[in-house]
Design a protein around this nucleic acid. Structure first.
Length: 431
RNA sequence: GUGAGUGUAGCUCAAUUGGUUAGAGUACCUGACUGUGGCUCAGGAUGUUGUGGGUUCGAUUCCCAUCACUCACCCCA
């Protein structure tokens, strides 16, 4: 293996065909689905002022304390590659005074500085939606359902949906106090991290995987048992609606999520086939965030799904044997001109067309066509020029026949659809 | 940030207790086929064994360091 001077930075990925196409397709599936539910695209910068993330994700969150790609630009501004999508969206909505309520979706890269492993990269793709200005539980259920529908449309069958409620401003303090008291009584059993969490964010103890902490947390007061009547009713309606829609879910008392800004409904999609990083995505309600950004009090809910993890979990569609690509083959240099002209004509007609200008022999051109997975070759030789025809060869079946020059576009189209219907081009990812 | 494992041809992997010329499949190139790919047959090319040190008469094999990748902790997408 010869030494490459440059290799990709740790935790980043290259996508070469056909993986690149598959990845784009997943994004396209998401876009289409989101649009089906009335969401519209929002595009925000890949980096923001660092304060945007510190303020929204929480100063004590792991993302902010140790996972951000932060840097100073040449004018000394403090900037950060976005570790998640929501803060930038909220900032942009306020900055542009987008009329609310509004439903927005985004697809794009996010960055976190953590040690890479299966399903976890330093640059990763997120697919997200944010519904701003909708307060009701039916929105929560619809959002949760939409995420489930997305994984379903990718053919992911082992996705489980977990939901929980963590209460609101009114009921959270009561629970927090109860939890703190409970944890302080069992301080000895807790790991170092969890002892710190008691003061900073006791909810996180529920997330801890240390066995003694799990035991200690088993009977700890959960948020759900302390929620106020309003939150309780809200959650019950969310669940009732999920039932009505037929989306299976598990209520998970310990599901609290890593971002500080959530309230009431939280949810997460889990896959068994992902390994340690088993979360396909998650989200929740964040009714206070817009206000904290200096905007008007605005209820909101959203989710972020992992593009890479979706790709990892989704069954691999068989790679198409043939692409809708025509390949023009010339015999002698005298035909290069006509070949080029024909290719341009086909392209103008919307047919992807390629020529091998470099291959000296016909055989080499056919090999190129085969390697490119072209559906057909169109041969131009001295004979064809005299007769005013092209020889059209179907590379899947091997049949070749002469077609009149002015019928070539129609014939190629016909050949494409014939290959499709004969199943020579297996279905793509979405079907 | 912590731990473990793995680095041999473009790819997937071999190489007996350290033994001299590092192999196979596949992919690639050429020819059989001078206007035709995919099949078949016959040939061909390819490696500083990740890198740098060390032990040894001799290292792909053992030791140390380093880099990269992978998995896990952590965290989450």
């Amino acid at each position: 293996m010869s030494e490459l001077k440059q290799s990709r930075p740790k935790g980043t990925q290259d996508f070469v065909p056909p993986d690149s196409e598959r990845r784009l397709q997943v994004g396209a599936t998401f876009r289409r689905l989101a649009e089906t539910y009335g969401y519209r695209a929002i595009i925000t910068p890949t980096f923001e002022h660092t304060a945007v993330f510190v303020k929204s994700s929480g100063e004590t969150s792991d993302i902010v304390t140790k996972e951000m790609y932060s840097f100073k630009d040449r004018a000394g501004r403090d900037l950060t590659l976005r570790p998640e999508g929501t803060p930038g969206v909220v900032r942009a909505v306020l900055e542009n005074q987008v009329r609310m309520p509004c439903r927005l979706y985004y697809v794009g890269p996010c960055f976190r500085y953590s040690r890479p492993q299966k399903g976890r990269y330093r640059e990763f793709g997120q697919l997200g939606i944010e519904a701003l200005g909708e307060a009701g539980p039916l929105t929560d259920a619809e959002v949760i359902f939409l995420g489930g529908a997305f994984f379903g449309s990718l053919g992911i069958s082992d996705c489980r949906t977990q939901v929980n409620t963590i209460g609101c401003r009114e009921c959270r303090p009561a629970h927090r106090d109860a939890l703190r008291t409970y944890l302080l009584e069992r301080r000895e059993q807790l790991c170092e991290d969890c002892r710190l969490r008691i003061e900073r964010n006791p909810l996180r103890v529920f997330d801890c995987k240390v066995e003694t902490c799990r035991q200690a947390a088993r009977d700890a007061p959960t948020p759900r048992h302390y929620v106020c009547p309003a939150c309780k009713a809200h959650f019950e309606q969310v669940l009732a609606n999920l039932d009505r829609r037929g989306l299976p879910y598990d209520v998970n008392d310990r599901l609290v999520r890593g971002l500080d800004y959530y309230n009431r409904t939280t949810f997460e999609y889990i896959s068994a086939s992902l390994g340690a990083q088993d979360s396909l995505g998650g989200g929740g309600r964040y009714d206070y965030l817009v206000e904290e950004f200096g905007g008007p009090a605005t209820p909101a809910i959203g989710f972020a799904l992992g593009l890479d993890r979706a790709l990892l979990t989704a069954p691999k569609a068989s790679v198409p044997a043939r692409r809708e690509l025509a390949f023009v083959v010339w015999l002698t240099e005298a035909e290069i001109g006509p070949a080029e002209k024909l290719a341009d004509r086909l392209r103008a007609d919307g047919i992807a067309t390629q020529i091998d200008y470099d291959a000296r022999k016909v055989k080499g051109q056919f090999k190129s066509a085969d390697a490119a997975q072209a559906a057909c070759c169109i041969v131009i030789g001295p004979d064809e020029l005299v007769k005013g025809v092209y020889s059209l060869k179907n590379l899947a079946t091997g049949e070749q026949r002469e077609v009149p020059a002015d019928a070539i576009t129609a014939e190629v189209r016909k050949l494409f659809t014939e290959q499709d219907s004969r199943g020579l081009v297996p279905g793509t990812l979405e079907s």
